Deep mutational scan, measured.
Amino acid sequence: MPSETPQAEVGPTGCPHRSGPHSAKGSLEKGSPEDKEAKEPLWIRPDAPSRCTWQLGRPASESPHHHTAPAKSPKILPDILKKIGDTPMVRINKIGKKFGLKCELLAKCEFFNAGGSVKDRISLRMIEDAERDGTLKPGDTIIEPTSGNTGIGLALAAAVRGYRCIIVMPEKMSSEKVDVLRALGAEIVRTPTNARFDSPESHVGVAWRLKNEIPNSHILDQYRNASNPLAHYDTTADEILQQCDGKLDMLVASVGTGGTITGIARKLKEKCPGCRIIGVDPEGSILAEPEELNQTEQTTYEVEGIGYDFIPTVLDRTVVDKWFKSNDEEAFTFARMLIAQEGLLCGGSAGSTVAVAVKAAQELQEGQRCVVILPDSVRNYMTKFLSDRWMLQKGFLKEEDLTEKKPWWWHLRVQELGLSAPLTVLPTITCGHTIEILREKGFDQAPVVDEAGVILGMVTLGNMLSSLLAGKVQPSDQVGKVIYKQFKQIRLTDTLGRLSHILEMDHFALVV
């Protein structure tokens, strides 16, 4: 994948999101292997301009796509893939009243899908469409860049269908997702969380590099694949309309690839034109409109599966009536509230959605109805927002919020430890010299600072030695090549209790 991002070429006709291997024109390309080798690009942008032909009021008969309808489940399912879809609609009884809503608040519980998330729908649909058009064949390999849930859905379907599955996901995604993927037989590649989507090191860039190296491999490409919004247009939206008897006044959905909100909203605009569509985008993402909503100094966020630093091709923002931004604290607070007060075992993005819903639905009156999409299960986040310690460490809970008995030293300040200034190293000294210094002084790690004293990161003896043994660096290389740029900081005025929580999850903390 090139470091400079080429513009994806656009073909003359058809839909841009065809499933299957992508040609340089962004659509299915038939021909000899030699032709494909000559024409197939190194990668295709996940934010390529959409060429979708959908228009409100256009006859369904003019759609270029294969459409399906929700099917009634048999008493005995032939395999677990038949437990994807037909998820329950559940009334939220307490939270709406707590925040003064007059309307009825309903939750579409997508964590009841077989793999635990709304992404099971698009995973199965992308595979079925690729099999139907002859792209996927027995023994082929599926590769997908994902925040985890699409990966789980694909790995689940691949396990049943017999495909090899490789999932490329950023490091910030939970260990629970990784464990589930491994249990399903998927191979996992992790990428830096802070890598831009168009960087060769991003999950998108690495996935395309693997595709170019592995024979008979395919990126189904949830960011561009029409099967993504079509899955929701054909099934999720129809289920909502049936469950609500066609009567709903507002739908609120958090947005990642945009397939969920695009597919549902398009069908609702056709069948229930008075329904307002509300999009939820986390602070630090750029999906919301108008652009002024996205202006923030924050560039990272903890909530998973929603928000991006690019506009995915499948996201149709014209069908969203209003956007709201959400933050991590309210997302996790509301997710825990949904679990504790409503018994809905949902993930953090569901918290984002409901946090926005109780604001947006203030305009609705008694007798009206708001539906929220709860995308995934708490299963993926047992060591994250479900953990009091994690919430404390991230600053989303305060010590006084917890009532468990603490040891005698818990409320003492870090400054009472009488710490001395640490050994520091410059980023320009060599790895070999740094190892000598650390061994001589008896230290395992040291902060790396520039000549102005600005902290650049941390270097550890173990990481340097393993990097040297693996051949990633040489003793003569500058130590700046092996620094940890993500590390926890703590102030002298913070409590030892807070430091204790940090050290339970990290090997060190830097006192500043």
Results as ranks from 00 to 15, higher is better:
residue 262 T to Q: 02
residue 17 H to N: 05
residue 150 T to M: 02
residue 154 L to T: 02
residue 42 L to H: 08
residue 128 E to G: 04
residue 166 I to L: 09
residue 24 A to K: 04
residue 230 L to Y: 09
residue 249 D to Y: 02
residue 10 V to Y: 11
residue 130 A to E: 06
residue 41 P to G: 09
residue 213 E to V: 10
residue 215 P to V: 06
residue 196 R to A: 05
residue 241 L to H: 02
residue 143 I to Q: 02
residue 274 G to P: 02
residue 203 H to W: 05
residue 77 L to Q: 15
residue 236 T to N: 13
residue 207 A to K: 07
residue 249 D to N: 04
residue 234 D to A: 09
residue 122 I to Q: 02
residue 262 T to D: 02
residue 105 L to Q: 02
residue 157 A to I: 07
residue 49 P to C: 10
residue 175 S to N: 10
residue 169 M to S: 02
residue 38 A to L: 15
residue 214 I to F: 09
residue 17 H to R: 08
residue 183 A to W: 06
residue 30 K to E: 15
residue 108 K to I: 02
residue 111 F to Q: 02
residue 248 L to Y: 02
residue 230 L to N: 06
residue 225 N to R: 06
residue 19 S to C: 02
residue 210 L to D: 04
residue 74 P to L: 12
residue 56 L to I: 12
residue 139 G to Q: 09
residue 58 R to F: 02
residue 87 T to I: 15
residue 192 P to D: 10
residue 207 A to Y: 02
residue 261 I to L: 07
residue 133 D to A: 02
residue 122 I to P: 02
residue 67 H to P: 02
residue 74 P to S: 11
residue 53 T to M: 11
residue 264 I to G: 04
residue 120 D to S: 07
residue 180 V to A: 10
residue 36 K to T: 08
residue 69 A to V: 15
residue 214 I to M: 09
residue 46 P to D: 06
residue 135 T to F: 09
residue 57 G to S: 14
residue 211 K to Y: 06
residue 190 R to D: 02
residue 163 Y to A: 02
residue 176 E to G: 07
residue 202 S to G: 06
residue 55 Q to C: 12
residue 139 G to V: 05
residue 244 C to A: 02
residue 195 A to F: 02
residue 12 P to L: 04
residue 236 T to E: 02
residue 145 P to C: 05
residue 44 I to G: 02
residue 93 N to S: 12
residue 207 A to Q: 02
residue 219 I to F: 05
residue 9 E to C: 14
residue 54 W to L: 07
residue 248 L to T: 08
residue 133 D to S: 02
residue 262 T to E: 02
residue 177 K to W: 02
residue 164 R to A: 08
residue 130 A to Y: 02
residue 84 I to F: 15
residue 174 S to H: 02
residue 62 E to K: 14
residue 176 E to I: 02
residue 67 H to S: 11
residue 171 E to L: 02
residue 230 L to V: 14
residue 269 K to P: 02
residue 48 A to Y: 10
residue 146 T to I: 02
residue 215 P to W: 09
residue 258 G to W: 02
residue 260 T to S: 10
residue 160 V to A: 15
residue 257 T to D: 02
residue 58 R to L: 13
residue 157 A to L: 02
